[in-house]
């Protein structure tokens, strides 16, 4: 078995294309939505009365502890059962798959991010809450002006790390037939059984994108979290 360098180089273009058009889009959109949702869950878990909070926490636990592929298939199945594809006849299947993918990744990782936010919120000293009470600040203002800005500082590196983890999970989109990079690699390699080349290239693209980001997060962690 020879490593066909020429073929490998040929596949870089299409794979990078799939990377930019699908993998990156899903990761960025998914992370942003997950970061917002996660914050909402974390605040809800502090603010809601126990009878609402406990079921919410349980649902988040279930989402966190069950597999992404199952959740992706579930999302598509719901979509089909509501006649989704027929309702959006002008939208192609791949776009719908990507949108569902973003939604599932965002919800799944929001449960992890919520845990990180909670840790960040817990690390804020009680005195900050008390000072806010002594100034009669309304609750919403306390969150927005005092607690969230401080918690964010401690949480940001973790959010970045979850985004990287999400990035590496994007090949799961394969199960709902979204043409992300690894699917593309499999397709390109399958034609001539040149799997070595395509998966090497795909792996290197992953490494090239995730390793520097992870190093950056570690630096950020040292800087922001004292």
């Amino acid at each position: 078995m020879e490593f066909d360098l020429e073929f490998a180089l040929e596949t870089v273009g299409p794979l990078l294309m799939a990377f930019l058009q699908v993998t990156l889009v899903v990761t960025v959109a998914g992370s942003v939505v997950a970061a917002l949702l996660g914050l909402i869950w974390a605040v809800c878990q502090r603010e809601l009365p126990t009878p609402v909070r406990l079921p919410l926490s349980w649902v988040l636990d279930v989402i966190r502890m069950t597999p992404l592929p199952l959740q992706l298939l579930f999302a598509v199945a719901i979509f089909i059962s509501f006649d989704g594809y027929r309702k959006f006849p002008d939208t192609d299947v791949e776009t719908i798959g990507m949108i569902l993918g973003v939604a599932v990744f965002a919800i799944h990782y929001s449960t992890y991010m919520a845990e990180s936010y909670r840790a960040g919120i817990d690390s804020i000293r009680q005195g900050q809450w008390e000072a806010a009470t002594a100034l009669s600040l309304p609750r919403s203002r306390v969150w927005r002006a005092v607690i969230i800005p401080q918690a964010l500082r401690a949480t940001l590196p973790s959010l970045g790390n979850w985004a990287i983890a999400m990035f590496k999970d994007t090949p799961f989109l394969l199960v709902i037939l979204v043409p992300e990079m690894v699917a593309k690699a499999k397709q390109l390699g399958g034609a001539s059984y040149q799997y070595t080349e395509v998966f090497t290239v795909a792996g290197l693209i992953f490494l090239a994108a995730s390793y520097p980001t992870a190093v950056l997060m570690r630096k950020l962690e040292k800087k922001l979290v004292y």
Binding site: R125, G127, Q128, A131, V146, Q150, R153
Partner: peptide, 12 residues
């Protein structure tokens, strides 16, 4: 109004 032993200024 209250002034605390540990000041409790908002660092952000």
């Amino acid at each position: 109004g209250m002034v605390f032993q540990q000041f409790n200024l908002f660092p952000n």
